[in-house]
Design a protein around this nucleic acid. Structure first.
Length: 487
RNA sequence: GGUCCUGUGGCCGAGUGGUUAGGCUCAGCUCUGCAAAAGCUGCUACUCCAGUUCGAACCUGGACGGGACCUCCA
């Protein structure tokens, strides 16, 4: 097997991927906070890591993929003041916090299914690991990197930074961070301005709170990932991922917590996916420019002219490398839809291709180019360019302008199956079932009538039949050996 | 303000110090009763300025533009 290179945020380089205990791989990805709908930007990240997961599986690794569900709420604003997002939402809607969590978790999983993301091996929740989070906080206090202040536990960043490289992930200078931080105004519980909470004292009216050695409270924002990754993947595992916006704060603090807890950098490879933008601006809940998956599928959104199949959206996203920003627009989506159909049509044509004694094309080289692209930090853009090359070869063979041996045709099948279906996770709707069979028969009857009309040179009738079928959603292509159709 | 990333043809989007990315759109041709599809051909770019180099879109410096993070965010 050829080496796989992945870009590691820690070293800012592409590095050869070497599993700690091959063939096993542990991968942790920061999942959603389930206090509202996942938007498309979130989905991009999870689709990107689904690609990582799928490719590792394809390469023969046995992957334990852990993606958390944050259901304990995060505070709003800087930290220690402010309100838990999930509680806030719950009060607003007069619901139990867990009712909110349940509703959005169910919705999240449904969206992931629509995008054909494989479910992670474990999807742990923050509320299910309160004890583990408390234990980590306790140990960090014992190790001298955290302190209690009026029922809240803070991580002592400045002390940690004296012995460790706190900003290893982003390469920023600590002084710059200190300068950039806002004044503590009123938060005199904290010793240092960069200190962050591991455990937060709850006010009596706070809806989600748990008992602890420090009184009633709830966990801080970063500690759940430390707790759950350590529990399921061990103190040192292979890949940790998330959106790029998590690197400077969430992941930086997570690394600090793990080091302070057990002296180990949690993951060898830190992977970060880039943002989805709308008109050049990051799509985010707080900016209010986010698209909901269902709006995109249905087309019901003021910026959209039509709806798009989830597979088209997935394909659209994978046409761009995961570390580049991807701008979202109707034009780009329409282009992706046309391109997607072209690949799909070629894949279908492949089944009916007639073999020759000789090949005029080098299919093995094409397959190698696909692997080379994927091994180069999962360059799906270049890999897909190869698939379009394959589509051109298939079509031109179908037209009799080039030829392929049986072995090469079979290899093309393997390439499409491997790279498009298994690795990119693109699923093609196959019409199965009784209704579909009946539909097939009915269309065939109509095409038969149209063929007779054409034979009689009754083009008025044949065109009418074609136009009406097109209006009904059936596209007709006339070939030398009869007509074919697609929906 | 600080730190970092980025600027590619009509649009989207890869990329490497010297050779065609790819997709979409558009035009022409072939095929076709017409249409659609498909194939072929064309439009062939790298923000600007300076430097390094035999040679730079790709390296360095500067300018300008865009973005991310510094507050929860994938």
């Amino acid at each position: 097997m050829q080496p796989l290179f992945l870009y590691n945020t820690l070293t800012r380089k592409k590095e050869e991927f070497k599993a700690i205990n091959p063939p096993y791989v542990g991968m942790y990805v920061c999942g959603p906070t389930v206090y509202s709908d996942v938007h498309l930007g979130n989905c991009r990240t999870f689709i990107s890591f689904d690609l990582v997961y799928r490719y590792l599986l394809h390469c023969g690794y046995k992957v334990r993929y852990v993606r958390n569900i944050t259901d304990a709420g995060h505070l709003e604003g800087d930290g220690d003041v402010g309100e838990d997002k999930i509680s806030k939402r719950a009060k607003l809607q007069q619901l139990e916090p867990m009712e909110i969590v349940q509703a959005y978790t169910v919705d999240f999983r449904e969206v992931m299914r629509q995008f054909n993301n494989l479910p992670p091996s474990i999807e742990p929740t923050a509320t299910g690991h309160i004890i583990e989070q408390q234990e980590i906080a306790e140990t960090i206090i014992k190790n001298g990197y955290a302190y209690e202040s009026n029922g809240t536990i803070y991580f002592d960043v400045e002390k940690f930074a004296k012995e460790h490289n706190y900003t290893a992930l982003t390469g920023r200078k600590l002084e710059d961070l200190l300068e950039g931080t806002r004044d503590l105004d009123g938060q005199d519980e904290k010793r240092g301005r960069l200190d962050f909470a591991l455990w937060i004292k709850a006010k009596p009216e706070h809806l989600m709170q748990w008992r602890s050695a420090w009184g009633q409270g709830f966990p801080g924002w970063h500690i759940e990932c430390s707790a759950m990754s350590t529990k399921y993947l061990g103190a040192h595992f292979d890949i940790h991922g998330g959106g790029m916006d998590l690197a400077p704060t969430h992941h930086t603090n997570e690394i600090a917590q793990n080091l302070a807890y057990c002296g180990k950098q949690p993951a060898n490879y830190w992977m970060h996916t880039n943002m989805l933008t709308v008109n050049g601006q990051k799509m985010s809940k707080s900016l209010g420019n986010s698209f909901l998956p269902r709006e995109l599928f249905s087309g019901i959104h003021h910026l959209l002219t039509k709806g798009y199949n989830p597979m088209v959206v997935r394909f659209f996203m994978l046409q761009t490398h995961y570390r580049s920003t991807l701008d979202f627009s109707n034009d780009a989506l329409n282009a992706a839809e046309t391109a997607f159909d072209r690949l799909h049509d070629a894949y279908k044509t492949l089944r009916t291709l007639k073999a020759s004694d000789k090949s005029t094309e080098d299919i093995a080289a094409l397959q190698k180019a696909c692997y080379d692209a994927m091994n180069d930090d999962l360059n799906t853009s270049v890999m897909m360019a190869q698939l379009f090359d394959a589509a051109r070869i298939i079509n031109s063979t179908n037209d009799g302008k080039s030829s392929l041996t049986r072995a090469d045709i079979d290899l093309l099948h393997v390439i499409f199956q491997n790279f498009l279906v298994d690795i990119c996770g693109v699923k093609f709707e196959e019409d199965n079932g009784e209704a579909a069979t009946v539909l097939h028969n009915v269309v065939d009857v109509l095409l038969d009538m149209r063929a007779k009309a054409k034979a009689d040179k009754n083009f008025q009738l044949s065109d009418e039949l074609r136009n009406k079928l097109v209006a009904a959603g059936v596209k007709i292509k006339d070939g030398k050996e009869g007509s074919t159709w697609t929906i």
